[in-house]
Design a protein around this nucleic acid. Sequence first.
DNA 1: TGGGGATTT
Length: 681
Amino acid sequence: MSLPAPRKKRRIHFDDDEGPKRSHSISSSPSTPLQKQREQLPIAKERDALIREIRENDVTILLGETGSGKTTQVPQYLLEAGLAGKGMIAVTQPRRVAATSLAARVAAERGVKLGSLVGYSVRFDEICGADTKIKYVSDGMLVRELLSDPLLSRYSVIVLDEAHERTLRTDFLIANLKSIQVKRKQATDVKGKGKCTSSAVNPLKIIVMSATLDAEKFSRFYHNARILYVKGRQHPVKIFYTAVNQTDYVDSALRTFFQIHLDQPPGDVLIFLPGQEDIESLEKSIKMHAKRLPVLVSLMYASLPPSQQARIFSATPPQTRKCILATNIAETSITIPGIKYVIDTGKSKEKRYLSKDTGGGFDTLLTRDITKASAMQRAGRAGREGPGFCFRLYTEEAFNNLAAASEPEIRRCSLTQSVLELKCLGQDLETVEFMDPPDINSVVAALKTLWILGALDDSKTLTPLGRQMASFPVEPYLARIILASSTHECTSEVIDIVSMISSSSKLFLDISDQRDAIASARSKFRHPSGDHLTILNTLRAYQEMAETENKSSRKEWCKQHFLNERTFTEALKIRDQLRVTCGRVGLDWRASKKDSEDPVLRSFTVGLVQQSALLQPDGSYKQLMGRSVVKIHPGSTLADKKVPAIIFDELVYTNQIYARGVSSVPRSYFNGATPAIPNGS
DNA sequence: TGGGGATTT
């Protein structure tokens, strides 16, 4: 290791600052009755004013600091005030785990069984009944509901929580709810005059809840809707900045950690870093310098094996300080108890989709400065259980120059799926009023992709094929592959692979210093054509093993092969869902050409025609549709192989443009794969 | 030779 031991004279100097303070709710003592706890929440004082405002206005913006209790209390206030009427109250959340745990909490507060008065609905998991009035839902779930019920008529109030996160799906809902509210108002007016007796369409109330100062923007979008503020309940977090800019944030983090470790009272430390590589490097440095002063180092990032993730929750032994090195997974998704000190490098990795008019576009993954909102969120992690400290490895001036909030996803993501969903609702992304309009190039790229996939015709009209594609809960290109498998009679195999690809957890675990062992453990699954059929082999091996083995041996088998069992369990749920959808659109999911790989690869080529490249005379791969030279990702079974043509699941630009999820196909498969393939170029 | 984080009738 090249990092020198931290020495006194090279201490990093932090300026003391009385500025931004932020922290989180005090967890209530378990002996207090739930009703008492409810009354003590900061929002309880505002109850009557809140109900009055919401009753009088169609849209309300609620700016509530963390710990105010808005997410659990507002729906109950609405219910108690009779504002739900005959309909339901929906509360959207960007993350499924939030939706399920909030529902459980609110059910407990009301003393009812989960799934009766209070329920939740997320993918694969719904606990609701005929008497459910408050329903916590993932934002994606409500988008899907919109496709079958364009007026969302079951709901009388829709609460969009965590709106400041600006997920693609929340923005999609914000835009649609605005026009739904108008339509439902018109329907109610007409009904009131006795001209309509059919449906029971009731007016819709919208409540947008946000934790940052974006409230004005939400208000402007909804005709200057009233903004209500609710204070949070927080422990103070003292913020420190560096006196000068740091050039090496990993080295700065190391020095700062030891300054805390040597000089400061007990308390665990959480260090925010951009990615796995920095985390592993800092882990080595800390361990090397911590010989005499015990430190328990644990790591936290999404692709870390679950068994190692669990370590961050273990109790810290006496006389030891726990130090957690994490990506921004610890910013919102995971709460770690016992943190008193936060070290913030001010960096994170950000994925951004670059649409190219020449091809399918690609994702970039670059280390960037965080936003002010993110910096405040990180600092808040030090004050959950008591007063805390946050050391920012940048100057106060640098903080002041950070962007207030990150760009909404609608300006960073591929819009292919959203355009298809809007087409199903009879709308166009070009004309729908969004809070932040998408980049026109992204819209054009999405339209082009959908046209190439056959979802839209030459006049941008939704085709029957496109409607079928939209009914599958996977990305349009994967839906196209499933539909193509019907022609090639291999839907069974294709659905197996598509389920694995669309699982959110990575199948192949990676531990940097065990790469050789990993490669040999997995070699038996390897298929010569590449990653798609290798995934199929792996799934088949898992299922064969799972038929006879119990839970702990299954876990052991996955560990031996460095595979993530969560990927299999999630994929099997997705597969069930896809099989049901196949039945609904008239596909036979049992169709199989046993052990014949050609039909499978032919089906994939239909959906991946935009994600393909041809071998050039100089040995490089160049996009079939597009001008970029791409390299096969080192993690692929085809890395370093030269084959005439490849198809791939995605392109990621880091240092080079890498193709991931790669298979080799004959060039002839591209002939007539879709009507859109340019001749001979 | 390399992987921020969510999510889908």
